[in-house]
Computed example of a mutant assay.
Amino acid sequence: MTDPQLWLSVLEIGSFFGLIALAYQLTLIGAGFFNFAIGPYAMAAALGASWLVVEFKIPAWAAILVGLVIAGVLSALTELLVVRPVQKRAGGGELPALVAVTAVLFIVQQGAGIVFGRRALPGQTLFRTPPVELGSVFVTSSALLLIVATAVIFILVSVWMRHSRTGRLLRAVGDNRDAAVLLGLPVRRIRLIAFALAGVIAGIAGILYAPKSGVSFTSGLSWTLVGFLALVIGGTGRTWAPLVGGLLLGAIQVFAPFYFGSLGPTTMVLVIALLFFAFRPQGMFATRVRI
């Protein structure tokens, strides 16, 4: 555990998990809803970008931009065409919408396999520079970009949530949707913004992580699960709480095989998830309620 290269891997993997969890958090805060299709959005963005580069030789920057548009549009359409009408027919109930979104997860996954192909593709990056040697650590351009982008995104989202009018409305709608409707707040527009922004952040996560792991149409389900667990562990009380949960999961992914073998990461993640569900379901950082 003293190898700096391993800790770099923890930062890289944890940053990815944290970004996926942040996308979850945005829809939860802004719409009061767990969008379990977050992972497939990330997969569709990364796989779509790689497919455009490999099949059509489109420049990486243009393909990445298209991938982000795909993720944002898919997420917005999920709210407009699935969550909103299902909740309306169910009288505001969440369970039917959760079931419908779970179906969206598999539809996006299988649709990506049909459109982009069922083979794994390498991730795309804007910067293809040789690894930089920092002491005993070799830092690739993709790893550095992922870590820096994660820090910047968390800072920007935190500032946006606290100081912008839209960010404050997002929190108000999430805190009490019925009260927001009575006050005449633009609930539908705010929910749509929450979903679209979450989709774009998920797309950024998938695109930046794909150079390390590659991407295939089946990646979405596993990314959905780890992002959800990172949110459960970190909690929703602070904007940066999902990043803490992601880094903890990243540490498990990197170090557990040294002590528990190849099944170690899966076993440890499940054990920690069960412990949090049982004893601290609000996560490490819960929302403070002032009385």
Score class of each variant (00 low, 15 high):
Ala286Cys: 05
Leu95Asp: 02
Gly14His: 06
Gly235Thr: 08
Thr125Gln: 12
Gly206Thr: 06
Leu145Arg: 12
Ala49Pro: 08
Gly123Phe: 02
Val157Lys: 00
Ile155Met: 05
Ser262Glu: 12
Tyr209Cys: 04
Val271Lys: 08
Gly250His: 15
Ala180Leu: 10
Val232Leu: 15
Thr27Ile: 09
Leu81Asp: 11
Asn176His: 15
Val173Thr: 09
Val244His: 04
Ala62Asp: 00
Ile291Tyr: 00
Val83Ser: 08
Pro242Cys: 03
Ala196Val: 05
Leu197Ala: 07
Asn35Asp: 14
Ala278Ile: 10
Leu81Ile: 06
Leu185Cys: 09
Arg165Met: 07
Leu247His: 10
Ala196Met: 12
Leu169His: 06
Trp223Ala: 15
Leu19Cys: 12
Phe138His: 02
Ala210Trp: 06
Ser136Gln: 07
Glu79Gly: 01
Arg118Ser: 12
Phe36Gln: 03
Ile233Tyr: 10
Gly123Tyr: 04
Ile153Leu: 12
Ile38Gln: 14
Ser141Arg: 07
Pro40Trp: 06
Trp240Asp: 05
Leu144Arg: 03
Gly245Val: 10
Tyr41Ile: 05
Ser216Tyr: 01
Phe260Cys: 01
Ile190Gly: 00
Ala71Ser: 14
Val269Leu: 13
Ala205Ser: 15
Leu247Gly: 13
Ala46Asn: 00
Arg238Ile: 02
Gly235Asp: 11
Phe255Lys: 07
Trp240Glu: 02
Thr287Ser: 08
Ile114Arg: 01
Asn176Phe: 13
Gly235Met: 12
Lys212Ser: 11
Leu225Cys: 06
Met43Lys: 10
Gly113Met: 02
Arg119Thr: 09
Gln5Asp: 12
Ile233Val: 14
Ser164Tyr: 09
Val54Leu: 15
Leu274Trp: 03
Val137Tyr: 10
Ile64Trp: 07
Leu65Pro: 04
Val69Asp: 09
Ile13Ser: 15
Leu225Lys: 06
Ala71Asn: 08
Ala210His: 11
Arg290Pro: 02
Glu133Met: 01
Gly113Pro: 06
Ala194Thr: 06
Thr224Tyr: 09
Arg177Lys: 12
Ile58Ser: 01
Ile70Lys: 00
Leu182Pro: 02
Asn176Pro: 13
Ile107Ala: 00
Val10Trp: 12
Arg89Ile: 13
Gly32His: 11
Pro257Arg: 13
Ala23Asp: 00
Thr166Leu: 12
Met284His: 04
Tyr209Asn: 10
Glu79Asn: 07
Ile207His: 04
Gly135His: 03
Val187Ser: 13
Ser15Gln: 08
Tyr24Lys: 03
Ala210Arg: 08
Gln25Leu: 15
Leu74Gly: 03
Phe36Ser: 15
Gly174Thr: 05
Leu197Trp: 02
Thr267Leu: 14
Leu121Met: 09
Leu247Val: 15
Arg118Leu: 02
Leu225Ser: 06
Val132Cys: 02
Pro130Thr: 03
Leu52Asp: 05
Leu229Ile: 13
Glu94Leu: 15
Val69Lys: 13
Met161Pro: 01
Arg171Gly: 01
Ala202Trp: 03
Ala100Leu: 08
Leu263Ile: 04
Ile64Val: 13
Gly32Thr: 07
Leu197Thr: 14
Pro211Phe: 03
Phe33Asn: 02
